[in-house]
Amino acid sequence: MSIENLSNRRLIVTTRQVKAARALLGWSQGDLAEGSAVSEPTIARLEAEDGPLGGRPETGAKIIRALVDAGIEFISENGGGLGVRLVNHLGGK
């Protein structure tokens, strides 16, 4: 899902997608914390639960924005399942 679509429709992102996105980028939870301005303990707590990314909506938005800005595209359920892909690796955190 492109960044333009983030504001145009309700994007449901799962903790598995966040973990997969971090893996594609080679990011630790600390790297995501730095890139999103969300504390590392909060990211760890959110990732510990399976299912949709929990927490406050603004916290999830910061996490998703950081990953999208780093080149991650979230793939919505389309019959093949949810996923992520790296579309534009910018090289930094």
Rank of each mutant, 00 (worst) to 15 (best):
38 V>Q: 01
33 A>T: 10
30 G>N: 11
18 V>M: 01
56 R>F: 05
11 L>S: 05
9 R>G: 02
43 I>Q: 08
90 L>F: 15
7 S>Q: 11
58 E>C: 05
88 N>H: 08
23 A>W: 14
69 D>M: 05
46 L>S: 12
2 S>L: 06
16 R>V: 08
18 V>D: 02
14 T>I: 15
83 G>D: 12
28 S>H: 08
69 D>H: 03
63 I>H: 02
57 P>I: 14
46 L>G: 06
48 A>G: 15
67 L>E: 04
51 G>V: 11
5 N>L: 02
29 Q>F: 00
12 I>M: 15
25 L>D: 08
16 R>D: 10
44 A>T: 03
72 I>H: 00
36 S>Q: 06
90 L>K: 14
9 R>A: 08
9 R>K: 07
16 R>P: 02
91 G>D: 12
79 G>N: 13
14 T>G: 03
93 K>G: 07
6 L>N: 11
16 R>C: 07
77 E>P: 03
26 G>P: 15
3 I>Y: 04
85 R>W: 06
1 M>F: 00
82 L>S: 05
68 V>R: 09
31 D>S: 08
56 R>S: 08
24 L>D: 13
5 N>P: 01
31 D>L: 10
67 L>A: 00
34 E>A: 15
54 G>Y: 07
34 E>T: 15
21 A>V: 13
41 P>I: 10
76 S>G: 04
47 E>S: 01
88 N>A: 07
56 R>Q: 15
61 A>C: 02
37 A>W: 02
85 R>S: 06
61 A>V: 14
73 E>P: 00
52 P>E: 11
21 A>Y: 02
48 A>E: 08
1 M>V: 11
3 I>R: 08
24 L>H: 08
15 T>R: 03
11 L>T: 13
72 I>T: 13
67 L>R: 04
75 I>L: 15
20 A>V: 08
56 R>A: 11
67 L>M: 05
